[in-house]
Structures are given as C-alpha cells and as structure tokens.
C-alpha cells in the first residue's frame, strides 16, 4: 500500500459513533451525541476509554465536511490538540452537543475545531486536520 491511498469508505459498527445532524452551514455545525450503556466499547463497569471521545470528535468533523461540502474521500491527518475533562464521566446519561467550527481549508486539507458540550461546559475538545482527496 502506498501512502497516497485514500479511503472511500465510511465507518460502521463498532467504529460508528452515534451523532445526529442538527444544524450546519459552510463554516460551522452543531450535532448531538449520546452514549448507551450497551455500547460495545464500554469496558466492565461502564468506563468509556478516552479514545472513544477522540474518535467521536473526528467523525463529527468528517460528518460536518460531508454535510457542508458533499460526499468526499478523506482521512485523518493529524490531531493538533485534544483534551478531556474527566467530569464527563458523571454526565454520560445526557445528550451532548458536538460543535464543529471550520478554521481553514488549505489545499486538500480541512482544519477544524470540535468540542463536546453540555450545559455550556466543554467536556472534550480538539483541533483536527482531515484530508479530502
């Protein structure tokens, strides 16, 4: 496989995150996300590994680009920063908002900031760069 192989695939179970479209325009979008007690990735005791939140933000950004720009081939090129507020584990029975803000497009790259929000508190956020080829 060479490095320029681009995926024309979408995630499905068990890597498909539960994200619903609410509102999106050319530069920003808002989605809803929730977690279920029987999600496959929950470890014994109900703990959700941080990587799941990281994947959720990345997939929401992809969903936003598809919503705003149409179907595309894309892959994750980098995560510039990602942080998680551990208080999220006290609120997993709630519906979260996932907000995507497009920072810039340069060439085939999309750079966006994504945050997981509940009651105006950001529980998780990151800056992601996706490639659309």
């Amino acid at each position: 496989m060479n490095d320029t192989t681009i995926l024309n695939q979408t995630q499905s179970y068990p890597m498909k995150m539960s994200v619903s479209d609410v509102d999106a325009d050319a530069t920003k979008g808002e989605f809803t996300a929730n977690f279920s007690a029987d999600d496959y990735y929950r470890e014994e005791g109900g703990f959700i590994p941080p990587l799941v939140f990281m994947e959720l933000l990345g997939q929401t950004a992809e969903k936003f680009y598809i919503t705003s720009d149409g179907e595309c081939k894309r892959y994750l090129a980098s995560i510039e920063d990602f942080s998680l507020n551990e208080d999220i584990y006290d609120n997993l029975d709630r519906d979260f908002s996932v907000k995507v803000n497009l920072i810039e497009k340069f060439g085939k790259l999309y750079r966006g900031h994504v945050s997981l929000v509940l009651d105006n508190t950001v529980y998780c956020e990151g800056t992601y760069v996706h490639c659309n080829a």
């Binding site: 941080p50 892959y75 994750l76 980098s78 995560i79 510039e80 920063d81 990602f82 551990e86």
Partner: peptide, 10 residues
C-alpha cells in the same frame, strides 16, 4: 488516564 493529546500526526 489520558487527559490530553497534542501534536498527533498520522
């Protein structure tokens, strides 16, 4: 617990 990830490149 991992609380942050920075400069991740794939």
């Amino acid at each position: 617990f991992v609380i942050s990830v920075n400069k991740a490149k794939f």
